[in-house]
């Protein structure tokens, strides 16, 4: 809670900073989500009704009201990646993480999502892990990335 207040105090009490606040706060949280208590605090600070805050969170795909894993993996599946075999990247992730689109691993380490274009079509296929983008992927590369992240945990 202290953390949210710290973030809030940086912004003017105006609705136009709502998305900035939500993004900054969510990024700072380990499980990358906004809880209903957070919504209530933000709503109170900005004077924006809770229904509107929820409306905003539910509209944007980068915002969530459900807890996610420590690493949110977003695999691009739009045409430029698809024709560069992004399916094999996604399938590899499903295989090694044993989860599907929108799910989180039991150890709360990874959440897998299919996402919209990451704008790295020149280096397709691409995926994003939290704020870091990985490009020119192959299934082998993906396996190494996941192993590295798993190792990082230890």
């Amino acid at each position: 809670m202290i953390l949210l207040n710290e973030i809030l105090s940086k912004y003017p009490k105006e609705q136009e900073y709502l998305i900035e606040i939500l993004l900054e706060y969510q990024t700072s949280k380990k499980n990358h989500y906004i809880s209903s208590e957070d919504v209530a605090s933000i709503s109170k600070y900005l004077g924006v009704p809770e229904s509107q805050v929820c409306s905003v969170i539910s509209f944007y795909s980068l915002l969530s009201m459900k807890p996610k894993g420590k690493y949110v993996i977003q695999v691009c599946h739009d045409v430029p990646c698809f024709v560069n075999d992004s399916t094999s990247i996604y399938d590899k992730l499903v295989e090694i993480l044993e989860i599907n689109d929108g799910e989180t691993t039991k150890d709360n380490l990874f959440t897998l999502e299919i996402t919209e274009c990451l704008g790295r079509c020149n280096e397709a296929p691409a995926m994003r892990v939290n704020n870091l983008v990985y490009v020119s992927l192959t299934p082998a590369k993906v396996e190494k990335i996941i192993n590295d992240l798993r190792g990082e945990k230890k």
């Binding site: 919504v39 009704p49 409306s55 539910s58």
Partner: peptide, 20 residues
């Protein structure tokens, strides 16, 4: 009152109170 608002987007939108 702002009890009701649009939650979600696209085909999944629902008009509900906060948190659905």
């Amino acid at each position: 009152m702002s009890v009701l608002d649009v939650m979600g987007r696209s085909k999944d939108i629902e008009i509900t109170p906060a948190y659905g």
